[in-house]
């Protein structure tokens, strides 16, 4: 009897452990997917406010100070920013970008494709005025 109870308890423990591990694995996978999208959005918007890329303003729209011959980080070039186009890879795409002045909001582009999306914003200066730029990054494959 003692042996039967002990074996049953052992089996139950083993079952609980495998269930727990499966649950943890599933949760880690979900968290990793969520974090991956969030990470991409953070890196993208960080590049946008710190770099300047005239070919693809989505990865660099900072103002170029010709006098100092340097890119002014967190100073947005609104003209260049308005030319920002699409960016995508196998797993994600940029669903939209916008510029918010508080009293006025300009949407550069916005695509509604229905995948899981994440929106992030950053603060920039435009000629001494504070503004907010936002980016919407979406997952591919669930459209």
């Amino acid at each position: 009897m003692d042996l039967a109870v002990a074996v049953l308890a052992l089996l139950m423990m083993a079952f609980l452990m495998t269930q727990h591990l499966n649950f943890e694995k599933e949760r880690e996978l979900q968290a990793s997917e969520k974090t991956s999208l969030q990470r991409k959005a953070i890196f993208l918007i960080d590049a946008m406010v710190k770099n300047r890329n005239e070919e693809n303003p989505l990865v660099g729209s900072a103002l170029l100070d010709w006098g100092k011959k340097r890119v002014e980080q967190n100073e947005l070039d609104p003209e260049l920013f308005s030319k920002a186009g699409q960016l995508q890879d196998e797993k994600f795409f940029v669903g939209g970008i916008y510029l918010d002045f508080g009293n006025k909001k300009e949407t550069i582009f916005l695509e509604k494709k229905g995948g899981e999306c994440i929106g992030l914003d950053r603060l920039v200066s435009i000629q001494g005025k504070l503004a907010m730029i936002g980016v919407v990054v979406c997952e591919k494959g669930q459209q």
């Binding site: 609980l16 452990m17 943890e24 953070i42």
Partner: peptide, 30 residues
């Protein structure tokens, strides 16, 4: 019995497993 000791040891290890406090995210960094 030996099996019961194993069971208790397993239960102990199961309870001692660290639990994550919520899913990690990058909101704080943002």
């Amino acid at each position: 019995s030996l099996e019961a000791i194993f069971s208790l040891a397993l239960l102990g290890s199961l309870l001692a497993m660290p639990l994550h406090d919520g899913s990690p995210d990058l909101n704080d960094l943002h």
